[in-house]
Simulated scan of single mutants.
Amino acid sequence: MKNKQDDRRDNVDKIQYNINKTIQNCELAEEMIRKTDDEKMKKTLTEKNERREEALNSMKREIEDEARDKKNGYK
């Protein structure tokens, strides 16, 4: 059985897509927070957005590492 070669050339694009979707989800959650009177939902959405912010920071560091790593073939 032949091992699949690790092709990371599109990692930056994939990470950027995930960053964009996460930002979009944060914005949608913020909109829901503003519109709802349900305190439990507000708390849940606020907590989710806090986790999303942490994930965004990690993804941004990862995209920088990937973009710097020339052996990945990213242009």
Rank of each mutant, 00 (worst) to 15 (best):
Ala29Cys: 03
Ile33Thr: 02
Tyr17Pro: 01
Lys21Ile: 05
Met1Gln: 11
Glu47Tyr: 07
Lys35Cys: 04
Asp13Gln: 13
Ile19Gly: 00
Lys70Glu: 04
Asp69Val: 05
Asn25Gln: 08
Asp65Cys: 11
Lys21Phe: 03
Met1His: 11
Glu53Ile: 05
Glu66Met: 10
Met1Tyr: 12
Lys4Gly: 04
Ile23Met: 10
Ile15Pro: 00
Glu30Tyr: 09
Thr22Glu: 04
Met32Leu: 09
Ile15Asp: 02
Gln16Thr: 14
Cys26Ser: 13
Ile19His: 01
Asn72Met: 07
Ile19Ala: 01
Asp69Lys: 15
Lys21Thr: 07
Thr44Pro: 00
Glu66Arg: 12
Lys75Arg: 15
Ile23Asp: 04
Ile15Met: 00
Met59Ala: 00
Lys14Ile: 08
Ala55Arg: 13
Asp13Val: 12
Ile15Tyr: 02
Lys60Met: 09
Asp10Phe: 11
Arg9Gln: 06
Leu45His: 00
Leu45Thr: 00
Lys42Cys: 00
Asn49Ala: 02
Asn20Thr: 14
Arg51Cys: 06
Ile15Leu: 04
Arg34Asp: 03
Arg8Trp: 05
Glu62Val: 07
Ile33Val: 05
Asn72Arg: 15
Cys26Pro: 03
Tyr74His: 14
Asn25Ala: 14
Glu54Gly: 07
Glu31His: 13
Glu50Phe: 05
Lys14Met: 06
Lys2His: 07
Ile23His: 09
Arg61Leu: 13
Lys60Glu: 09
Gln24Met: 10
Ile63Leu: 05
Glu39Ser: 08
Lys42Pro: 02
